[in-house]
């Protein structure tokens, strides 16, 4: 991964289909996240005070509709792709060879782990007050 930058962002990779797909993926997920993340922040940090968002409030109110669960799961999926592919670029700019490869595999492992636990909680959390 050579660190080539144009006047805007990374220069679109030539020839390598995987790199080209990631390049488009970053931009398309970026557009979707522009809407999803800013909406998320507006609702949960501006319209509501996060210090009042207890586990019971999330279970009973926030995730009471399938719409918001799908919304949050879509955001989870896209944000993990976008954030981890972004960190992959950062690693490529700072390190090379074996250390970079090890860091990248660590990164992919962490992304998979977060995807699994995030999906688990958004799918299985009941709409009643959790015990405790």
């Amino acid at each position: 991964m050579s660190g080539r930058y144009g006047r805007s962002g990374r220069v679109k990779p030539q020839g390598d289909r995987f790199e080209t797909a990631v390049w488009y993926g970053m931009r398309l997920s970026g557009i979707a996240l522009f809407v999803l993340v800013l909406t998320h922040y507006l609702i949960l940090h501006v319209l509501y005070d996060p210090s009042e968002q207890t586990a019971a409030w999330i279970a009973e109110v926030r995730w009471s509709s399938t719409f918001w669960r799908v919304f949050d799961w879509s955001m989870l999926t896209l944000v993990l792709f976008h954030a981890f592919m972004g960190m992959r670029v950062v690693i490529g700019d700072l390190a090379g060879g074996r250390p970079a490869a090890v860091l990248r595999y660590g990164l992919y492992g962490l992304a998979l782990f977060l995807f699994l636990i995030g999906t688990y909680v958004v799918v299985t959390l009941p709409n009643v007050v959790p015990a405790g």
């Binding site: 586990a55 019971a56 977060l114 636990i117 688990y120 909680v121 959390l125 015990a131």
Partner: peptide, 10 residues
Amino acid sequence: VDIFLVGVAP
């Protein structure tokens, strides 16, 4: 991770 706690350790 903190949202995962909502499910497993509210």
